[in-house]
Amino acid sequence: MSLVRAENLTKTYRFGDIAVPAIKGVDFSIDPASFVCFVGPSGSGKSTLLNMIGCLDQPTGGTLKVLGTDIATLDRRAAARFRGENIGFVFQDFNLIPVLTAYENIEYPLIMVQEWPAKKRRQQVLRLLAAVGMADQANKRPDQMSGGQKQRVAVARALVSNAKLVLADEPTANLDHDTAYRIIELMRKMRDEFGTTFVFSTHDPKIMGEAELTFVLEDGRIPDGAGKGETHHV
């Protein structure tokens, strides 16, 4: 069963009387524990697609099912709950909370979203800190960390609540090539260790080569069908 399945998915933004189609009827599916990349130039619809998969936005046509749930049926509150329970996010600008340490940033979803008991929370955070190689930086605040370290913490935060799907919109755009490569490696390692599906977007050709499945988006379109190890162009 697919983790994410899109059928004839469309998204059109309206600015007054002007309709701007961002996604124009795409079909794709993503299997559990896969390592998937969406590539395409700016404005091709990568972020719009990731936003919809992440239940941050709703389609205007077609269907999009994430973990079997039609996201069009989720209201604002339900979407927040669904994201908190199932989806992790890694952002281009890391988006760590500046007043919290690395440990507390990772712990944040377990406190504010899922309300785990303290002991279990501590075990999980320490496990993730170790997994991303940040155990010795636990007490550092974001302004005391390098870009790569921040993104490691962001990956740990995305995984901490046992998310089944992690969405990363341009996670390496603000990193130098070596660091970017190490972050992608880390994400793949996390996929292997936790069985989490990683979906990320990039326009770095070297980074996109690391994905097991790549969808190329151009002008809001994507080819029919998808398979492991393939790259799909329109």
Binding site: R77, A80, G84, F91, I97, M112, Q114
Partner: peptide, 16 residues
């Protein structure tokens, strides 16, 4: 605002 967007994206409820 971006911080609010982040905590909202990772599932923090509007009430929280």
């Amino acid at each position: 605002i971006r911080e609010i967007g982040t905590i909202s994206a990772i599932g923090t409820s509007p009430g929280k």
